[in-house]
Amino acid sequence: MDEFFENPIFGLFLTLAIGWLGVKIRDKSGKNWVNPMLLSVLMVIVVLLTLDIPYESYKKGGDLIHMFLGPITVVLAVPLYSNRDYLKKYSKSILVGILLGSFSALISVVFLSKLFGLDEFLMKSIMGRSVTTPIALAIADMLKANQSIVIIAVSITGVFSILIVPFVYKLLKITHPIAKGVALGTAAHAIGTGKAMEYGPLEGAMSALSIGIAGVFTIVWILIFQVIGFI
């Protein structure tokens, strides 16, 4: 039977079936804070543990899906390109905002990790948390950190961001649609973009184009941190 589960098609099928089920459950629940990806992950883990299937066997099929994250990173260029007219008009505010936003995301993780007594490996595993998952995984790779931890940190980031953002915008009197969209895309990647779309199409477009820029800027900051020996 072990051989059966070693077949990559098994892991591929399990991920497809449960991935689809996760989205169905989210849609039926009608709650937009339910994260279908995390739900599916839990269900896959339960199935593997119940049937006593080793993670390595599942991974053979999982890797077939995982390897597409590279090409997915490449197509992040498309929303950026499609919204280039907005970028031109407000280039200074968008670029400076994302540059400082990405920096604040990284620097806060470094200082809070020290404050909370996390070791360097955990800190590096969380550093990519504000950017979109495929880029966060590339960052984890660069820093030789743990890929599963960064995805969980990215997911917490997304879920928490959309919960707090209405209060933050009210408290700080953020009313400009460009600011609302760019901050959501920079701080909360695709999940933030979903929220930005609720504010309006302009906010949504700004958020979508910020995802790719924030990913690239974050990587550039990390390279700078490495060169100056900060991390």
């Binding site: 407000y90 200074k92 505010s93 968008i94 400076v96 905002g97 994302i98 400082l100 936003g101 604040s104 995301a105 806060s108 993780v109 809070l112 990790s113 909370f116 007594g117 996390l118 955990l122 969380i126 948390r129 504000s130 931890i149 969980i152 940190a153 917490i156 980031t157 928490f160 961001s161 707090i164 953002v165 933050v168 915008y169 700080l172 953020i174 009313t175 400009h176 460009i178 600011a179 609302k180 760019v182 901050a183 959501l184 920079t186 701080a187 909360a188």
Partner: peptide
């Protein structure tokens, strides 16, 4: 738990700084 709290604080900082900077320059 520490990681969850850390991420939450870091998210608050990131959203606030990005939104304030963009709004300031855009306005």
């Amino acid at each position: 738990l520490k990681i969850i709290v850390l991420v939450m604080i870091s998210v608050l900082i990131t959203i606030s700084i990005t939104a304030l900077v963009v709004q300031f320059i855009a306005k």
